[in-house]
Amino acid sequence: MSRFRRLGRFLVALPPYAWLVVFFLIPCLIVFKISLSEAQQGIPPYLPLVDWAAEAGTRLRVNLGNYGYLFGDELYAAAYLGSLRLAGISTLCCLLIGYPAAYAIARAPGAWRHSLLLLVALPFWTSFLIRVYAWIGILKTEGLLNGLLLWLGIITEPLQILQTNLAVVIGMVYSYLPFMVLPLYANLEKMDLSLLEAAADLGCRPFRAFLAVTLPLSVPGIIAGSVLVFVPAVGEFVIPDLLGGPDTLMIGKVLWAEFFDNRDWPVASAVAVAMLVLLVAPVMVFQHIQHKRAEATR
């Protein structure tokens, strides 16, 4: 009986784990391996890590130089910081827009909630790439936004928004907003409203009750939403490439350039590994907090 159970459990758990191993863990290891090898002209454009053919026997050729290179050239540090900065600003904007939105949806009458949630998820029906392209049409000098502002007489000269960091932030906020709204909604929706009644009963005005009760209790939702926005935003390539300008320095673009323009796979891999490490740290902090929270409210 229990043997069958264990077998069943194993079989159910197998496909997702197999999927993760084959399409996530192994590629990661391959990238990590490449990041330790040396570049060469040819196919593949790097030397094997383990040299089988040498007469002196099998030899391991580990090259940490690629990582050293990341430290050596200021470009990389600047690109990392640029990514963190733009992703941070975008996350903050998403939070400022997404929190009231999620709150409004969570407190809307039951019949409305599903329609409103559907609206939040609606952009996913269209390809991400097309939606980012559409922003070019809106933001460019002779685009919709400038046209509108000129027509309203608010400005006399068209504004240069496209190909600036502002356009990148707009694009990222637009693209990642649902990832902020949905976890926040899930959190706010399951909040026990009698807590707010209790607060009111004890003499607390609505806004103070929000600060004292709702906000602290929604911290897990804020963290979840922020991680979901921040992490992909840091590594974002498409948005800075399409909407950003020459001074938009983001690590995703640098990685692209290393890989396709310079054909330096080992350095590109090292950039990717460094980015992974940089992002895994906050995620682990997040999970640690989540875990502690879950224990505290059980």
Binding site: D192, S194, E197, A198, D201, L202, C204, T297
Partner: peptide, 29 residues
């Protein structure tokens, strides 16, 4: 409004604030 009434209610679910200690809960009002 409830926050100005001279009555207090003990809720069926108790509605204690989960993120506050016993002391903070009692001190809240």
């Amino acid at each position: 409004p409830p926050y100005e009434r001279p009555v207090n209610m003990m809720f069926q679910s108790y509605a204690l604030f989960p993120h506050m200690s016993v002391e903070q809960n009692v001190a809240f009002g």
